[in-house]
Amino acid sequence: QVALSRTQVCGILREELFQGDAFHQSDTHIFIIMGASGDLAKKKIYPTIWWLFRDGLLPENTFIVGYARSRLTVADIRKQSEPFFKATPEEKLKLEDFFARNSYVAGQYDDAASYQRLNSHMNALHLGSQANRLFYLALPPTVYEAVTKNIHESCMSQIGWNRIIVEKPFGRDLQSSDRLSNHISSLFREDQIYRIDHYLGKEMVQNLMVLRFANRIFGPIWNRDNIACVILTFKEPFGTEGRGGYFDEFGIIRDVMQNHLLQMLCLVAMEKPASTNSDDVRDEKVKVLKCISEVQANNVVLGQYVGNPDGEGEATKGYLDDPTVPRGSTTATFAAVVLYVENERWDGVPFILRCGKALNERKAEVRLQFHDVAGDIFHQQCKRNELVIRVQPNEAVYTKMMTKKPGMFFNPEESELDLTYGNRYKNVKLPDAYERLILDVFCGSQMHFVRSDELREAWRIFTPLLHQIELEKPKPIPYIYGSRGPTEADELMKRVGFQYEGTYKWVNPHKL
Rank of each mutant, 00 (worst) to 15 (best):
Y481P: 05
I292N: 04
R362E: 00
Y425E: 05
H371D: 08
H371L: 10
F410L: 14
I477K: 15
Y481G: 07
C443V: 15
P393K: 08
D372K: 06
T330Q: 14
P412E: 09
E312P: 10
I352W: 03
S278T: 08
A315K: 13
L261A: 10
M493L: 13
K400D: 03
G348I: 05
E395L: 08
L430H: 09
H467C: 10
V325L: 07
N308S: 14
Y305P: 00
D418I: 01
M447C: 08
E491K: 13
S415I: 06
K475H: 15
R451S: 01
E501R: 11
F370C: 06
P464G: 12
E294K: 10
P412S: 12
T331S: 12
D453H: 08
L437T: 01
F442P: 00
L353C: 07
L466A: 06
V391C: 03
R345P: 05
E314L: 09
D321W: 06
R362P: 09
L302E: 04
D490L: 13
F449N: 01
V268H: 00
V366Y: 03
E344N: 09
A364D: 04
T403N: 14
L417N: 01
N299L: 11
V281H: 03
R460F: 03
T276P: 10
V366P: 04
D440K: 07
P478T: 10
H371S: 12
S445A: 15
F442T: 13
Q369C: 07
P326W: 07
L417G: 04
I352T: 04
I480R: 15
T503H: 10
D283P: 01
P474V: 14
E501H: 14
F442L: 07
D255K: 03
N423F: 11
Y319A: 03
D490K: 08
V373C: 10
R367D: 07
P486Y: 02
A269W: 01
S452Y: 05
L430C: 10
K317P: 09
N394Y: 13
V366H: 00
L359E: 05
L267P: 04
L353P: 03
R367G: 02
V337W: 07
A364N: 03
G482I: 03
P464Y: 07
M493W: 09
T463W: 02
A274S: 15
P412R: 08
V373Q: 11
V337H: 07
S445G: 15
D418E: 07
Y479A: 00
E386D: 00
E314Q: 11
E284H: 08
D280R: 10
L320W: 08
A396Y: 05
T330D: 10
V306G: 11
E470F: 08
W459A: 02
H467E: 09
W506K: 05
A335S: 13
L471Q: 14
V268G: 06
N360M: 01
L261M: 11
A269G: 13
E395C: 09
S293Y: 10
T399Y: 13
T276D: 13
V286C: 09
G482P: 03
P323N: 15
R424W: 00
D432K: 10
F409I: 15
N308R: 15
D280T: 11
P476V: 10
R451W: 07
V338R: 10
A458L: 04
F351R: 02
E344W: 07
D255L: 04
G502T: 10
Q263A: 00
R456Y: 08
L353V: 08
E271Q: 06
Q381P: 14
N308F: 11
E470N: 14
P393Q: 08
V349D: 04
A358N: 02
I292R: 01
Q369W: 01
A297C: 14
N427D: 12
E472T: 14
T324K: 09
K505P: 07
G311T: 11
R484T: 01
L320R: 10
V341T: 04
I480K: 15
M264E: 00
K405F: 15
Y434N: 05
A274D: 12
H379C: 12
A458F: 03
K383E: 15
R456K: 15
A297F: 15
P412M: 10
R484P: 04
D440Y: 04
V391I: 13
K475T: 13
L353K: 01
R495T: 13
E416I: 00
L302I: 10
I480E: 13
E386F: 01
T333C: 00
E344A: 11
K317I: 12
F378C: 07
N277M: 10
V295P: 15
N411F: 07
S329E: 05
V300M: 12
G348S: 10
M401D: 03
Q446V: 07
E488N: 09
Q304I: 01
V281A: 09
L261E: 01
N277P: 04
G444N: 09
T331H: 07
T333V: 00
Q499I: 13
V349A: 00
D279A: 10
L417K: 01
F351P: 06
A336Y: 01
N299W: 09
Y340E: 12
M493P: 06
H448A: 09
K429W: 05
Q296S: 09
V441E: 02
R460V: 03
K272R: 13
V388Q: 01
I352S: 00
C443T: 10
L267K: 05
A332Y: 04
E470Y: 09
E488V: 09
N394V: 06
K404F: 00
A297S: 15
F498S: 07
A458Y: 02
R456T: 08
Q304A: 07
E395T: 07
K357Y: 02
K287H: 10
A396S: 13
S329F: 03
R354C: 03
L417D: 04
P412A: 11
A358L: 04
G422M: 11
V428T: 08
F442D: 03
T399S: 14
F334L: 07
F449D: 05
G444T: 06
F498Q: 08
K405E: 14
T503L: 15
D440H: 07
K404Q: 02
R484H: 05
E342K: 10
E395D: 15
A358M: 04
I477N: 13
F378G: 04
A458N: 02
Q380G: 15
D279T: 09
L353M: 10
N411C: 10
P309F: 10
Q380P: 11
E501A: 10
A315F: 09
N411D: 14
L437V: 08
L466I: 12
L359V: 10
V295K: 07
L353R: 03
N385K: 03
